[in-house]
């Protein structure tokens, strides 16, 4: 049952991700991205981590995609360039490389998955895995310094972006 659900939503995640790339309309791409965030959130739920799943929805589907949509609408992007150009970019050679890349990914995935399910990350260890208390305890004790450093880095990035966007 769980395996079936994971397979279903894994396929859904991949399909929506492909639609993000192949939609010609930028707003449609953004919408497929929202759908993709949702399927990934469901995958997190299946891994027993409610908190990370809802963060995926709040942060990515809610806030970040809203920003992207806002930016797309502000800039009023029209449909992506000529269709010929898109077709030229997807010449057979590139498709072949892309296909090989995917086959490689699948081999890697199959190779790694049985090991990942054994040992330290078995069903028992996963039971309380994504509970908010555990995440909070980790962030505010062991992970405190990296966490604060990342926030300083992000603040610096925001200040830098404001400076770059400013026209004297």
């Amino acid at each position: 049952m769980e395996l079936f659900a994971i397979l279903l939503f894994g396929i859904a995640a991949t399909t929506t991700a492909l639609f993000v790339i192949f939609s010609k309309n930028t707003v449609h791409s953004a919408l497929w991205m929202v759908a993709n965030c949702f399927t990934v959130a469901v995958l997190f739920l299946l891994l027993n981590s409610q908190f990370i799943a809802i963060l995926q929805i709040i942060v990515y589907a809610g806030a970040i995609m809203m920003f992207i949509l806002y930016a797309i609408m502000m800039l009023n992007l029209k449909k992506a360039g000529d269709e010929d150009q898109v077709k030229n970019n997807l010449a057979p050679g590139r498709l072949l490389i892309l296909g090989l890349f995917f086959i490689g990914l699948i081999i890697l995935g199959i190779g790694f998955s049985p090991q990942a399910l054994k040992g330290g990350m078995g069903a028992d260890a996963l039971a309380g895995f994504g509970e908010i208390n555990l995440v909070a305890n980790y962030i505010f004790s062991k992970g405190l310094i990296p966490f604060e450093l990342v926030s300083v880095l992000l603040t610096a990035a925001v200040v830098g972006a404001v400076y770059l966007a400013k026209k004297d």
Binding site: F51, I54, M66, M73, E131
Partner: peptide, 25 residues
């Protein structure tokens, strides 16, 4: 009564505004 409670509401309330935005667009 999920353990994420209020976060669920905050998350989905934001998603509701996609209806407004997309309707307008």
């Amino acid at each position: 009564n999920p353990s994420i409670g209020i976060l669920f509401i905050l998350g989905f309330a934001t998603l509701g505004s996609y209806g407004t935005i997309l309707g307008g667009w």
